[in-house]
Design a protein around this nucleic acid. Structure first.
Lengths: 297, 297
DNA sequence: GCCTTGTGTTCGGTAGTACCGAACGCGGTT
DNA sequence: AACCGCGTTCGGTACTACCGAACACAAGGC
């Protein structure tokens, strides 16, 4: 986040370091140890373009955001453009994301066994519940949505794909957490904390653990305006062939549109869909309650 | 493809290049001039993983495919993994595509004005025609599909997104070519040639030009087993707010399922959908015949 | 059992290169 | 005209990305 370039600013021009090399490889870009700087920069460049406006950014914009000189930025951008990751629009070169990105994303979803297979099930679920239904994979404990089917005539939510969601403030996240041991849950929470998103967000571990107990007995997790005001989600976990949690299925809708008496019915529908996904994966159906088998791992 | 590393092998150690610069910066990686080598390699690495098996590749596999040492490959892979572009699976580190790729792809489609907006239209078209319907953007003359909606109960075709299709052997491609001048078409063909895909593929420019004339008078383009045996496609162009061709809409199905008398009806349906997309973009409806207006450009 | 072959990993050392800054040519606005 | 801003090119040098060898570990063969 707050990484600044140690390159041009810090080193006095005359100070030539003795060649015997007292300096270790010098932690690279703030990201980690032993990485390739120019590549890390290039990836940050892509991120910048992705976060930028839809009509693209100029080279100077990129140079400023990246904190490098224009010439360096040009070289990076050219290389990325040659690979199709970036694309320079015609009038007054503005860089946007290239088509290769789309292709890679499509391949990634296809390789992620759940990719295409779950689509029909999500479509069915979306029609049945009239809500936006999504499928998430479990990425080191975090839910990451990889597929989305909007309900018929439903409002379109801003639901980005491929992004880590907060485990404690999403239905999918809590469905996944509910399959873990208490210690694992505590470890997860230690990583990210439990940042408040709305006035309903669960912000202490003990309340979360109690909530997860409820998830286990109900068979589905609920996000009742805990992530965004007015938004209601409901999700259940799915399991892979090894019995470990593989992700979750969830539905999203406007809280006001949803009478309380429908919640249980929705929960059953989501759970039925999730079980079918688990079945495709060769995994077990969701356990009714309590133990989930992942404890021995 | 057949680029070999000029690094350690080619340059004699003592031969110090005269500083006046007789040699130009030495074409980098085979990709283009003035690019950053390590970044180009990193992107090739991602491509290799994408083209590899779904269960991933080992580091040694990557090193072999990339033609670099394991240590270099490790540094590249680590950097990419830190950015989320790659992901090392748990048992015996195997690299697969990371979730960032999915996120970027989703953003890219969202930024590509057609992204979400066209979805409902494609869904409608898919239900109406009972065929797989897709939307392509025009990338330097080439059609690149960015959205796909499978028809109800239709066979799932292998239809990768974000990939350049052959202009002469796809309905979308010919729909786009039909908006160009003869010279532009010839230039396009000169770039890629007209490789034969099936026994029905059009392989000489004059036949192609004649076919395009037919496209203009019909108002839609047909791919009658020209790209793949047994596959029938039908497409029409869409236009942006500047009046230039922006892409195409096409439907795909099994040739045998499609009686000849339905072709015209399908053409009208596709064209109606394409016109609606054009309308969303603020562009003109497709012209009935002949001139397409892009000739003056 | 040991030896072999594979894996992923770390560590020096050097040559090469990725980086910056300055200068250039353009098209726009003040 | 003079002025920014843009994208682009060109040298030169400090740095860094690269390789190769060595290491630790796991699996498979004789």
């Amino acid at each position: 986040m707050s990484d600044q370039e140690p390159r041009g600013a810090a080193a006095p021009p005359g100070a030539q370091r003795p060649p015997d090399g007292g300096a270790p490889p010098a932690d690279d870009d703030g990201t980690g140890r032993y990485t390739v700087r120019s590549v890390a920069r290039a990836m940050r460049l892509v991120q910048i373009v992705a976060d930028g406006p839809a009509n693209g950014l100029t080279l100077s914009d990129l140079a400023r955001s990246l904190g490098t000189s224009k010439s360096t930025t040009l070289a990076l951008a050219r290389t990325l453009a040659a690979a199709g990751m970036l694309r320079d629009a015609k009038p007054g070169p503005r860089y946007t994301l290239g088509t290769t990105v789309i292709r890679l994303g499509d391949i990634a979803r296809g390789q992620l066994p759940l990719g295409d297979l779950s689509r029909p099930l999500l479509t069915e679920l979306a029609e049945e519940t009239k809500m936006t239904s999504r499928l998430a994979i479990c990425d080191e404990g975090f839910p990451v949505f990889i597929e989305r089917v909007d309900g018929p005539g439903s409002v379109r939510f801003h639901t980005p794909l491929g992004q880590r969601e907060m485990p404690h403030a999403s239905a999918a996240g809590k469905a996944i957490l509910a399959t873990m041991t208490e210690q694992q849950v505590r470890d997860m929470c230690a990583q990210t904390g439990l940042p408040r998103r709305t006035s309903h967000t669960i912000t202490d571990v003990d309340s979360l653990l109690a909530n997860l107990e409820l998830v286990r007995s109900n068979g589905f997790a609920i996000d009742d305006e805990e992530d965004a005001e007015g938004i209601f989600c409901l999700g259940t976990a799915i399991f892979g062939h090894d019995g470990a949690v593989a992700g979750a299925v969830s539905v999203t809708g406007i809280k006001g549109d949803l009478p309380a008496w429908r919640v249980n019915e929705l929960g059953q529908a989501v759970r039925r869909a999730a079980d079918q996904v688990s079945h495709i994966l060769g995994g077990p159906r969701q356990k009714d309650t309590g133990r989930t088998g992942s404890e021995t791992a």
